[in-house]
Amino acid sequence: MSAPPPAALVLDMRGLRCPQPVLRAKKALRSLSEGESLVLECTDPLTVIDVPHFCNQTGHRLAAQERKDALYVFTIVKRA
């Protein structure tokens, strides 16, 4: 797994079930500036549906999506 960019905010969402990862991502994105990255580390398999859908609905860019064993890692870049 590649390391997130240095300016990325990383949220450990391990153990949280839907809809908590998306709700916390939404809140965290409010504190970021346009172009900054948010990295989500999740264990809920439903996040592979929820996070891309969230990005499509809000206009944020899903820059990366990766699975390593039972860990799902998403990198979201904030839009304007």
Rank of each mutant, 00 (worst) to 15 (best):
V77S: 01
K78M: 05
Q65A: 12
Q20G: 08
L62M: 03
M1S: 09
R14Q: 10
R24S: 04
K68Q: 10
L9Q: 00
L38A: 00
A28F: 01
L62C: 01
R67Q: 12
D44H: 09
A3D: 12
H53S: 10
A28L: 02
P5K: 13
G59R: 01
R79L: 14
L46R: 12
S31N: 14
P5T: 14
P45A: 10
T75W: 03
C55G: 02
P21E: 06
V48H: 13
C42S: 10
P6Q: 03
L40A: 00
H60C: 01
G15F: 06
T43G: 14
H60E: 06
A8P: 01
A64E: 07
V48M: 13
I49P: 11
K26A: 09
R79P: 07
Y72D: 05
L46D: 10
K27E: 15
L38W: 01
R79V: 10
V51M: 05
R14Y: 08
N56Y: 14
I76P: 00
I49Q: 11
R14M: 08
M13C: 10
D69K: 14
H53K: 12
E66D: 15
K27V: 15
Q20M: 10
A7L: 07
C55N: 01
E36F: 13
C18R: 15
T75D: 00
L23N: 09
E41Q: 08
P19T: 09
V77P: 01
F74V: 05
A64L: 09
P6A: 03
D50P: 12
A8Q: 00
E36M: 14
R30A: 15
L38D: 00
I49V: 12
Q20D: 12
P45S: 11
N56F: 14
L40K: 00
R61V: 08
R30W: 15
D44Q: 12
T75R: 04
F74C: 04
